[in-house]
Every structure is written in C-alpha cells, then in structure tokens.
Nucleic acid binder design. Structure first.
Lengths: 337, 337
DNA sequence: TTGTATGCGTTATCAG
DNA sequence: CTGATAACGCATACAA
C-alpha cells in the first residue's frame, strides 16, 4: 500500500501539502508543485485509504440501502422484482454521486441500526419497510432517510419519500384503453388499499372524464387468495364476456388472468384486451406480451439518491414527497375495438 | 458515538481490558470484570467503529462482489436474472460469515481495482466477468478471488471457481423425460459452446444409456438471432411434429418456443412436452408453468463465500473447482406418454 | 490480570 | 505557500 507519506517523502514535501493537492485546495499550494505531485500520485498509483479517511472525518460517504422483501426466495414476488431492479439502479446512482452502498436484504431493523453506527452511515434509503420499522429507525438513527414506494401518511423530520404517481398511472392506462375504443371495461384488483386504491381513482377519473356512466360498477374486486381467485374467474365469465377490456392493477394479476381465461375459452387479445401495471418481467415474458404501465425505478433511484445526498450536505430539499410519473408501454395484449 | 474509552472510564479500567473483553480473550481478564464490562457494553449500546478497526488491523472483512451483466436494463437477460438472485444470496451468506459486501454492477475492472485498494478488500467474488477481466484483476489484486459460473479453462493461483454441474443437469432432465416415456425427443439450443455444450453432452449420455439410436441427430441448433429463430420454427414444424418432447437449454428459449409453437398450432404439453433449464422467473410465469432444471444459486453463493473466507483466513481449500449439482423441478409442461 | 504506549493513514488546526 | 502536530477509535506488543 502506498500512503500520502510516501508521496510526500518522494516529493520532498510534507504530507499536508500532498493532502492539499489531493483536495484541490487551489491557492494553498503553488501550481508547479501541485502539478508535480499530481504526476507522482498518478505514477505511483496512490489510492487513499477509506478507513483512514472515515476515521479522520465525521462523514463516511456510505449509504445504507434497506430492501426488505417478504419472499425468502428471490424474484418470487412483485415487490421483489421491483426491488431487484431498484438495487441495480441505486448502486449506479449512489456511485455516481461519489458515495458507497451497503446493502441489506431481509434484515432486521436492529441489525441495520447496529451496522449504521458501525459504519457511520451518512443516511439510509429504504424500500419496502413497514411504518413500525421506519419509526424504529427514525428513533435510533439521527441521519437523513429516504423511503421509496412507502406512501407514509405522516411526515417525519429528516425523512423524505419518493413514490410512484399511481393516480396518474391509473388515469393514463384508462385513457389509453379509451383511446383504443374500449367502452366496456373493468378495473380489476384484489384489494382497494394503498397504491391499488390510487390506481383505481386515477382510472375512475379517466372514465368519468370520458363521460361514461355508472363508473363505480367498473371496479371488480377479486379474492386475495390465489386459489380462490382462480376459482372465481369461472363464475365471473358472464360478466367478463360483456367487456372488451380488463385493466389489472399489476402485471402479475394480468398474466394470471390471461392464462386462466384462456383455459376458460377467452383469448387475449382476440376476445378480451388486458393491461397490467408495473412493467416487470411478467410483462415481457407473458404470452401475449403485456401492455402495461411502466414504473420508472431508475428515476426513483436517481431521485432518492439526489434527495438523500442533498440532505446529507445540508442542501434544503424543496419537495420532500416526490411522485415519479409513469407511462404506458404498448405491447400485444390490447386490441383496438 | 460511544467509544471503548468511554466504557473504560466508566468501568474504571483501561481500554485494553475493554478491548480484551470484546474480543473474548478468555483468561486475559477476570470473569467478574468481564461480566461487568459486558453489561456496560450492552447498556451503553457500544458499537465498534469499523473504520477504526479496519485502520488498526490489516484485514478489512470487506468482500468485493462484481456482477457484470450485459444488459443495461435490469432483469432483461437470463444472466441478469441469475445475477439478481445471486446478489441476494451472497448478501446473506457474506453477512453470515461476519463479512461485508461491496457490490459492483456493470463497472469497469479499473474501478473495481481502485475501490478494492481504497477499501482494502479481503477478496473478490465475481460473476459474469470475462477472462480478460479476470486476468486484469489477477495481475493487480493480490488477494483471493472466487468466480461463479465462469468455467475457466486455465487455473490461476489464488483463484477458485464454483459452477453448475451442467453435464449432470443435462443428464437429469434427459433421464426425467425418458422416465416419462418420451423416446422421440430433441435437445434444442442456439449454440454448442460452454455450458450449453456440457448440457448437451449430459443429455446425450442419458439417451445413450437408454439405448436410443442415432443420438447425435437429437441435437437441434437454432439461430442465435431471435427474429431468425422465431422464423425458423415454421420450417421445422414437420420435424417437431415427429417428436413428443423438446428439451431446451434455457427457460428463456423454452418459453419463447411454447408461445411460438402455440401460434403454429402445437400446444404444450398436449401436443408436445417442453422442458427448460435454470429455473428462473420465466419458468413460473410462463403458461403452462415450466418443468425445468433448478440451478442452486443459494448453494453457489454459500460455497463461494465459504471458499473465499477460507482462503482469506489461510485455510487450505481442498477443491478449487466446485460443481454444484442441479435437480429437476416438475411443473406442468411435460406430459407422460 | 491489568495498564501504558504506539501505530494505522488521513484530515485539520495553527504556526511559520 | 508550506510544515509540524494533534486528533480520529481501535488493537496490540510490551511492561508492570
């Protein structure tokens, strides 16, 4: 390992001077000397020791990233697919800002807190944690936190959030289906809470704006249990046959339905158009490929890191609750009528 | 932040004593004192500073994990799906061994080398890097390296590898199809290199062992280009109609084929049984769900970490080229004949 | 069994 | 513009 001291000795100057050169303190060292030392740093391949730097400064430039997924097996759930993309994008975004990422998947908040102090994290980015976990973190961790897709009702000091514009997404896909001529359509979900509720409201608005009547009857709620849901489709056939399109609140449900309905004799998109939501792998593996609403995980990652690093460096963040817009991705599961 | 010194002062002892208690140096400190200090550590919530520890010791307990995926968008390629699971499992395995993970996705080896010195990595685990990259790493990084699924021809000092038993996997799925009564079957790939070659050889052996004749004609090579491949299926229909099962060398190709063949009037599994390889998300999203060969990414992660930590701590590793066995996962794409 | 002293590599303060 | 020097928190050789 090559240290500042080595450079200093070789250049015949003190370590302070070398340090000043490294930190671009213009005016504190003569240009000629600076150039000479820079050359040596290059030549000798000097790389500063991060542990030493972390020890000497009070900030660490390390960001903890907490991704808690319900499923033990990776990539099995909708959330996990989103999480996997997010991790990729966060790694890039964090590094681009000159920070380091320490990743936690399926860890207890206790562990995260322990490590956050051991590493002296500058901040934490969290995806898929519960309100209890956030409050636990909040109580014991005095640094900035940004949550992704968590939709907190309350606001907490030093906590920002970035989420999806679910309302807008619902409206977009509703408008898209209308633009394809569909007038007999249903919004299908297995619950009416949180994001699915927002998506329904957006969809609903699109329908109302188009002057459709009896809009509330366009909301179909299926059982949350998979087996029951698959069972339910049979009984719903008469209702579904009256429709020209089904707007699902997730790619997962859309693909499941396409497969199930095909068994029951309803083909997509020949008999019934189908749309999803999320644009995860389901959408481009399914047959037919799914027209869906894209969630910009890259943009969410970028924003989360930007907000966090701003908070870290004391820059005031204007908007602490950002909603990232969505857009419709056209594939093969919708047919104009 | 609470330091060793704070504990020492509060207990009226020296920092050395506290340090000894922390490091379980039995015999160097009286049991009574040890217990008292342990209590204080708990009570005061002391967490050791990793930067200080890293600076004081010559090892860092940080492992660099390099995951280079060709696709810019996450989860778009077969490799990327495997990589995403791997990252999850590595994070767990590394933490279980008391190490820390620093993740690099789609980074240049130059960057990795820079950081490996900045952080003083104890070792590196690499997935999906080229031979050139490995040699570059090898030349500039004097610590242990473990590659995953890289199938190196040469051996390098201080480098271990863990891979899949592709030959065994090919044999297993071949035997499985035979056990289901299939005798007219093809092994389908878009190349005959590397892992796909090994899988074919395994499959081939199963066929030969069963006494099938003209085994070499059971190897069907499709174009690597997707559009051309989809096109090719039409012309292959006569050949395919003579078969009862197709054994694909990846889930991706299997799903693609199921969809394409359905368009062409061949249903899975009614008309033709289909199997895949890898057991990634394709296999459980497709319709019908795919019978395939499972790759134990969890076991590979566990093994890689174990081998690396052994090398780090100077324990000699018996076998530097481990092959992890596979197993068949039965789903709905195969029908007995 | 416990304490003292020193070093790890970097940054920051304060003189010159 | 440059150079001593003192932290930062921990581990350890060596003394007591």
């Amino acid at each position: 390992m090559i240290r500042i001291k080595d450079i200093a000795e070789r250049a015949g100057v003190s370590t302070t001077t070398v340090s000043n050169v490294i930190h671009q303190k213009e005016g504190k060292v003569s240009p000629a000397l600076a150039a000479r030392i820079k050359g040596m740093i290059q030549e000798m391949g000097y790389v500063p020791s991060l542990s030493a730097r972390m020890l000497a400064k009070e900030d660490s430039h390390v960001i903890g990233v907490v991704v808690n997924c319900e499923a033990e097996e990776p990539l099995r759930s909708r959330k996990d697919l989103l999480a996997a993309s997010l991790v990729r994008y966060l790694e890039t975004a964090i590094r681009e800002k000159g920070y380091y990422m320490m990743l936690f998947t399926r860890r207890s908040m206790e562990e995260v807190l322990q490590e956050s102090r051991a590493w002296n994290f500058d901040g934490v980015i969290a995806f898929g944690i519960t309100r209890e976990e956030l409050e636990h973190l909040r109580a014991a961790f005095p640094k900035p936190v940004v949550t992704i897709d968590n939709s907190l009702e309350q606001t907490y000091s030093n906590v920002c959030q970035v989420g999806t514009d679910d309302f807008g997404g619902g409206r977009q896909i509703g408008e898209y289906l209308l633009s394809q001529g569909h007038r007999k359509l249903l919004f299908v979900a297995d619950n009416d809470r949180g994001e699915d509720h927002c998506r329904w409201l957006g969809f609903r608005e699109a329908m109302e704006a188009a002057g459709l009547s009896d809009v509330d009857s366009m909301h179909l709620l299926l059982p949350e249990d998979r087996a029951q849901r698959l069972e339910a489709y049979a009984g719903l056939l008469p209702l579904l046959r009256q429709q020209t399109a089904l707007c699902f609140c997730s790619d997962y449900h859309a693909v499941e339905a396409m497969n199930r309905l095909r068994e029951l004799g309803l083909r997509t998109p020949e008999d019934l158009s189908v749309t999803g939501f999320d644009d995860v792998v389901y959408a481009w593996v399914s047959w037919p490929n799914l027209t869906t609403v894209h969630q910009c995980m890259d943009e969410k990652a970028r924003l989360a890191v930007e907000m966090l690093t701003n908070m870290v460096s004391g820059v005031s963040v204007e908007n602490c609750d950002q909603k990232v817009p969505t857009y419709v991705v056209e594939r093969d599961s919708v047919r104009p009528v």
